[in-house]
Design a protein around this nucleic acid. Structure first.
Lengths: 259, 259
DNA sequence: TTGTTTTTGATCGTTTTTGATAGAATTGCA
DNA sequence: TGCAATTCTATCAAAAACGATCAAAAACAA
């Protein structure tokens, strides 16, 4: 006989698992199997469902609770998706940073990758309008300055007149910017005008502007214009960047790095 | 046999290490190996991961803490410690809030409790200089405005001149404040002058100031003066509040709620 | 009943984690 | 400085855990 009668309904069993994980914070697959008297395959499937529902987080050997914890709960959506490319881009960008600099990080997952790389640098000042970047750096070495302003929930960034007011009070050596799309004709564009305005303001003020944008953003045009190419000094992208950019942009005075 | 069954999940073990390092400030690889009953190789790998996450810094022979822990203790601990009282206080404070109001929340675990209660209110505007409160509200209904400013790591709040600049641009109906200590003679005090300055500024500008402070703060005096009692309109505390406060403060025009 | 869908358990090849080992690097001490 | 002891990194192999797949059992519908 391959299958035994099932004593509990699946949703009931999953609820049981959820409670076990929440109570102790962790649960191992093997323990759950013994507790619930089902095969490990079933446990794994249940964990998969529960993770999909956000009830817990799977780890090798079992699962851990997701309740509480600010830093991990907030992230993990877009961040892991294209992380390889983005991380490579972030690492390349990191090389640009010198000693004792002041930096600006705007919102976006690539700049968030970069934030992670800055954690042990106690010589840097990081200005950001990204709540995620701030949370990432909240317990690390660099000095962190938040721009303030109204929180735009969808991007977890601060925008608006209050943001502008603070930005006018600071000066950064290097600004690392993301974008929703870029093309030769329209330059950098993004969905939200408020967001675009802040980005534009930073691009004006920073000594050097570094655009971090993987190739999926190439030739995309969005609603709100951020800035033209002449404000950008360096573009860091990946190898799939269309050749037209590597050819044209240097003629306009930009440096292009592909990783 | 090369490998034994793993009794604890990797993230659990790493959390254990993190706490050990944070408590004593340092930990040697050999000690951790004995405590956790795994090989030194595993300990080293864990330390590597934790360092990557910025939770600690590796040194020859072990690791040292990067998370600063002074008298203000680490936040998560505080959140759980007196959570019952604090939650009761927060719930009482919540009753004060009307429709369509603008509120200020400052740092501290009690105000964080209050933030949780506001999540489903789409008619409110919440101004805060607390990164944790902002993170708590980041994916919820209320409009959120961050003050900006330099991030004070230990309290996870924004302070300094940039914060003041933004605060001067907004007006709130009700400010909910925490404090490190309060007494009749010195009013409200806290450890950090920057923090105190921001609190004082808010207290000046808010239409109504509500102090959320459990009885453990009573008769405590800290270094930096926040404000005198005449700026405070309501004190919400618990039943263990010394009677002297319930007697004296109403004479000074304050309302005192004990829960 | 019969036919269909869903759920479960077993198997197998792959990935991840762990522990051991060896050579390089660092530290402490003379 | 030189030497010994300790600790680190890199690498490999064993064990455990994993995902994909398939077939049996159960639940369901007509």
């Amino acid at each position: 006989m391959i299958r035994e009668a099932c004593p509990t309904l699946a949703p009931q069993r999953r609820e049981h698992i959820r409670l076990l994980v929440r109570e102790s914070g962790v649960a191992r697959v093997e323990d759950l199997r013994r507790e619930l008297k089902v095969s490990v395959a079933t446990i794994r499937r249940d964990l998969e469902v529960l993770e999909e529902e956000g009830k817990l987080r799977r780890v090798h050997g079992g699962a851990v609770s997701t309740e509480n914890r600010l830093d991990e709960a907030v992230f993990d959506d877009k961040t892991n998706q294209f992380s390889k490319q983005k991380r490579a881009i972030a690492e390349e960008a990191y090389q640009l940073i010198g000693q004792e600099e002041s930096l600006f990080l705007d919102g976006g997952s690539t700049t968030l990758c970069l934030a992670r790389l800055l954690k042990n640098r106690n010589d840097l000042t990081v200005v950001t309008n990204s709540l995620r970047a701030a949370a990432e750096l909240a317990n690390s070495e660099p000095r962190v300055i938040l721009t303030g302003g109204e929180l735009r929930k969808i991007s977890q960034t601060m925008v608006g007149p209050l943001t502008s007011a603070v930005l006018s009070q600071v000066r950064v050596d290097r600004a690392f910017m993301g974008t929703m799309g870029f093309c030769l004709k329209n330059g950098l564009t993004t969905t939200d005008p408020n967001e675009a305005f802040v980005k534009g303001l930073v691009a004006e003020q920073a000594v050097q502007v570094v655009l971090l944008a993987d190739s999926s953003k190439a030739e995309k045009v969005s609603f709100a214009r951020v800035s033209d190419w002449d404000k950008v000094d360096i573009l860091v992208s990946d190898q799939k960047l269309p050749p037209i950019f590597t050819k044209s942009l240097p003629k306009r005075g930009l440096k292009v790095c592909v990783v």
